[in-house]
Design a protein around this nucleic acid. Structure first.
Length: 421
DNA sequence: TCTGGGGTCCTAGGACCC
DNA sequence: TCTGGGGTCCTAGGACCC
């Protein structure tokens, strides 16, 4: 049986989500901003064409926004994750083995589908997702995941050929032609550093990279570079995907305003710890370690810089908020230094494992009570948007940040359904 | 003064992804 | 004035062991 993978990739995903409920956004430039409306994290094709780049700070593109009438949105992750799960449900309905790779991408196994039938299948998936959910997608297939990703990129970049590239089964020489169209920095797994290095050796296209010597790649780019090379040559390296357990779980935020006060910082760190604990319980997990970090603004070198972190262990595994908050605050006190303007902080849980393997506490009764308390609080918070907090937590909404341009929760809150006049 | 060989484990930092 | 958040994996070097 021939190995073959499909890759479904949603086009301009966050923007497309906003467009479902607001058709006036179609055909006009749209951007979606990060937390605190800091920088651009998604762009419509029109915004890309204007030259708005990924990660541009909002304040720096204000004149372009005015000039071109760009529509601006704060990120609405509840909406995006809900739409994402709908897209994935539709793909899943085709009964293929699939692996959700990110919020807007999924691989699926089409080795069992004959080459002649692949084009029609891809067309069906594409239509069904666009009709049922309203999200435009690009679907490509290849012998390896890396090739599917690369071809997907080419299909999006050369939109005039996109419909031909999608769903086609290519010969080796046709693949080489596509790889020549793809610059090496756009290969999955080659980032800023490696593309700089490769360029300095005259390697510019994905095809140039494919022709490199194994030994050279191993020496300069490590084992991952070598795997990448093999994948690009059509030899699948990624082992058949199995569900991987999460290793870390984090809540980190940048602050809109600088923080220099330990009491205020303690409020934020408590909220981050408490939120991490909530995410842990939501996935039925427990953790044994917590890391706290704080840092000043590395973009502003006029202020003196400081950054530090510390990792502490709990007594055994836990998902109990007060335990986690207490340890996080202990860590904060170890690293906090007065006299600095802090810009970012976070709480990261690690040594995570599923709850059912949890070691039993020495006092089972205490554990039972804790569990019931947390379950009750989570229930209330889910319904009433996090109203129940520990006394130490910041009374403001530390998690969601400031959002000036946020759209409605069209699909996840009865009170915010789309109104049709 | 001369200063082996083989192994494990841990950690910080680097590189990448969306 | 204002620059996101949440992840993964690999590697080199140090500490330690016999």
């Amino acid at each position: 049986m021939n190995r073959a993978y499909g890759l479904l990739d949603c086009n301009n995903f966050f923007v497309s989500c906003e467009r479902i409920f607001n058709p006036s956004l179609k055909g006009v430039p749209v951007v979606v901003l990060s937390n605190n409306d800091g920088c651009v994290v998604a762009r419509s094709q029109e915004a890309k064409d204007i030259g708005i780049s990924m990660g541009s700070p909002h304040f720096r593109i204000k004149s372009e926004i005015r000039k071109w009438g760009i529509k601006v949105f704060s990120s609405n992750f509840s909406l995006y994750t809900d739409i994402s799960s709908r897209v994935m449900d539709v793909l899943n309905s085709f009964g293929l083995n699939m692996e959700i790779y990110s919020v807007d991408e999924a691989f699926f196994d089409i080795g069992c589908i004959s080459e002649e039938k692949r084009g029609a299948l891809i067309e069906m998936i594409k239509c069904k997702v666009e009709r049922w959910v309203g999200i435009p997608v690009t679907i490509t297939t290849a012998k390896t995941k890396t090739l599917a990703k690369t071809i997907n990129h080419v299909a999006k970049k050369y939109r005039e050929y996109g419909s031909i590239i999608e769903g086609s089964v290519f010969s080796d020489s046709e693949i080489d032609a596509l790889l020549k169209l793809c610059s090496v920095k756009d290969v999955w797994g080659i980032g800023f550093r490696y593309s700089f290095l490769l360029n300095s050796f005259g390697v510019r296209s994905a095809y140039n990279f494919k022709c490199l010597d194994n030994g050279w790649v191993r020496r300069n780019m490590g084992i991952n570079g070598l795997r990448l090379l093999q994948e690009l040559r059509g030899f699948p390296i990624h082992i058949a995907s199995s569900y991987k357990e999460k290793r870390t779980l984090a809540t980190t935020r940048s602050f809109k305003k600088y923080i220099s006060d330990l009491v205020l910082m303690s409020g934020y760190v408590s909220s981050f710890a408490s939120h991490s604990a909530f995410k842990l319980r939501r996935e039925n997990l427990v953790a044994r370690e917590v890391t706290v970090f704080i840092r000043t603004n590395s973009h502003n070198l006029r202020y003196k810089q400081y950054s530090n972190s510390v990792t502490l262990q709990f007594d055994g595994y836990t998902s109990f908020s007060p335990d986690i908050v207490k340890k996080a605050l202990e860590g904060l006190r170890m690293i906090f230094k007065p006299g600095y303007l802090y810009k970012k902080a976070g709480v990261i849980l690690s040594e995570i494992r599923p709850l059912d393997k949890e070691q039993t506490y020495m006092f089972p009764s205490r554990k039972m009570v804790n569990k019931d308390v947390m379950r009750a609080i989570d229930k209330v918070n889910l319904k009433w948007n996090g109203v129940v907090k520990l006394g130490i937590e910041n009374p403001l909404d530390s998690i969601n940040g400031e959002k000036e341009f946020v759209s409605q929760l069209y699909t996840t809150d009865w009170r915010q359904l789309l109104t049709v006049s």
